[in-house]
Write a protein that binds this DNA or RNA. Structure first.
Lengths: 111, 111
DNA sequence: CGGGATCCCGGATGATACTG
DNA sequence: CAGTATCATCCGGGATCCCG
């Protein structure tokens, strides 16, 4: 995966790798982190993430949507309004992120 | 990575991303998975992982070592003998992998 | 056996310009 | 506002060859 992302479904039947494939993208855990606090619009996410390009955000959101983690709601208005939120499955990622966060804190303290 | 793996230390002070940076490599969770069962030699890992190149295995092991997750023991013999194992810190990754595995299982069942 | 040195490619991401 | 299209770039990782 270049950075990280890993979008291949190479025979590897390891569930841990499956998870990594889903949340391994450069910005995905951040996106999920923010959506855990509630629904957000595209522009809000762009500003919150700080530094992500529209092209990349769009792509990562669509991948998360394809994996059933994120729900996209298009209001079909002009000007456009689109809201993103976590699906029930997406919300079940919270304990995973928390355990990763806890470990990351320990590692960071180590230096 | 290709991205995937994320080796940048960009200001991002998010612990979750720190964890992802450490275990996000193409083979790292697999390596850790095997080392959780005990000490292994370079060749053993190569065969167990199946398909990894020596260059990449060497590199990922050194990165894990630099992050304090893996310990390397060189016996300084001829022919060479090197053993790899998890450090105490490395072993604390087990609950993280388990939560990722549990989620991965659910997702895989979803299709 | 356990790597290091090189060469190389594809995918991931950014920058920029444009649009409904 | 929320994207898409296109071009440019960067980097992880594979393939191959070589060595102590």
């Amino acid at each position: 995966m270049g950075a990280g992302a890993k979008s291949k479904q190479k025979g590897v039947a390891c569930p841990v790798e499956t998870t990594l494939r889903v949340i391994g993208g450069r910005w995905k855990v951040l996106i999920i982190h923010f959506l855990l606090t509630g629904t957000m619009r595209f522009g809000e996410l762009t500003r919150s993430l700080g530094g992500i390009s529209a092209r990349t955000l769009s792509k990562q959101l669509r991948e998360l949507e394809a994996d059933g983690v994120v729900a996209r709601k298009d209001f079909g208005e002009i000007p456009p309004k689109v809201e993103y939120s976590l699906t029930p499955l997406g919300k079940t990622l919270e304990p995973v992120l928390r355990s990763m966060e806890a470990w990351g804190v320990v590692v960071e303290r180590r230096r």
